[in-house]
Simulated scan of single mutants.
Amino acid sequence: MSLSTRIEAKLREAFSPERLSVIDESAQHAGHQPGFAGVEGTHMRVRIVAQAFAGMTRLARHRAITELLQPELDEGLHALAIEPAAPGEETRW
């Protein structure tokens, strides 16, 4: 199972999102550090809209997702961009 598939499954189970995109942006970061070739699964973006985020601060939403995905971060996920929203909130995507 790919990292993006694993992340998506964990987010769906934890937050039951209305909308969810897990985007692997690793290739866009090739060459940013010496020897980094843009290996799959190092830089991910999560865009998620879920009722579970209603009433939560932006920081609380980020913490909830980061805590859920801590094992992936410990296993080598280098960067995680998080764009959380509750239903009805404006998104840029």
Rank of each mutant, 00 (worst) to 15 (best):
T5K: 12
T5Y: 01
R6L: 10
I7R: 04
A9L: 07
R12W: 01
E13P: 02
R19L: 10
S21N: 12
S21C: 06
S21K: 13
S21W: 00
V22L: 03
I23S: 08
D24F: 00
D24V: 05
E25P: 07
H29D: 02
A30H: 10
G31S: 10
P34M: 04
P34A: 06
G35M: 07
A37F: 07
A37C: 07
G38N: 13
G38F: 06
G38V: 11
G38L: 08
G38R: 11
E40N: 12
E40D: 12
E40I: 13
T42I: 05
R45Q: 15
R45D: 15
R45V: 15
R47Q: 15
R47N: 15
V49T: 13
V49N: 04
V49S: 06
A50V: 13
Q51E: 15
A52K: 14
F53E: 02
G55N: 08
M56Y: 01
T57D: 03
R58F: 00
R58S: 14
A60S: 14
A60G: 15
A60Q: 15
H62N: 12
R63K: 11
A64F: 08
I65K: 01
T66V: 11
L68W: 01
L68G: 09
L68D: 12
Q70T: 12
L73S: 06
E75G: 08
E75L: 06
G76F: 00
G76H: 09
L77G: 11
L77I: 10
H78E: 01
A79K: 15
L80G: 05
A81Q: 11
A81E: 04
E83W: 03
A85G: 08
A86H: 03
A86R: 02
P87E: 01
E90C: 00
E90A: 12
T91P: 04
